[in-house]
Amino acid sequence: MTDFLDTLTAAAPRLWEATLVTLQLSVGGAAVAFVVAVLLGLASLSGVALVRGTSRVVVEFFRGTSLVVQLFWLFFVLPQLGVDLPSMTTGILALGLNYGAYGSEVVRGSINAVPKGQWETTVALSMSPVTTMRRVIWPQAWALMLPGLNNLLIMLIKGSALAGFIFLQDLTFVTDQLRRTTDTFVAFGIGMVIYYLIALGASGVLRWLERRAQRRLGLAPPTRRERIRQNAETARLQGTGAVGAPAGGGAAGAPTGGGAP
């Protein structure tokens, strides 16, 4: 047991560094993946056939080729073409493009799942396509896409383990080194626990976003704080309404007759 603790203490700084690398890859990769997913997802719903087709081809390409090969391509082939990216950037880019392609299908599916009546109403109100998407469709699709994105985020975190192939000292790389100097069981055990904790945290954040999105659609009861804010808003609105009513109620002598609503 002391042995174990000693090894752990000795390895702690390196494990911490490795965890940071994995976190950096995950957060960076997720950010790129999200942007790619939204762009490709929206493009796949475009009215312009060329845009739709391009999105289709890009998605199929990044879904259909292996992440490792994409990683190698960015790392070994791009420099030959004169583009030399740091390992971390390469890793983030590869993860972002690959998982972004999967994510675009989640985005597309969620947007398509917003009831047809909502789209028709925006037509009846003559809303522009941008207003329609930004104000009406996206907020509803957002609540629908979060569970799917949550899944992909966890897969992306675990997929970041491939970064060892391009010499990034990430969590998998370091636990594997640790295995050689210590005990297989301990080393991989620690690796597992850290990955699990990262995934747990990430998934917690997305679950929180999901519940928030659902509350905004009235699908989940509001939190206490939101309820208080809502009541204040209602009171304020009714106050505004009263301003429109006869303004001759200044019998109380308050000097604020023309006060802002």
Binding site: G117, Q118, L125, T131, R135, V136, Q140
Partner: peptide
């Protein structure tokens, strides 16, 4: 303008925002 059988209010907005949305943005 049109009123639909299924109302089709925007669930992501309060009642007042449902009404002001198009006048403001359109």
């Amino acid at each position: 303008g049109m009123v639909f059988q299924q109302f089709n209010l925007f669930p992501n907005m309060t009642v007042i925002d449902n009404i002001t949305e198009a006048p403001v943005h359109v």
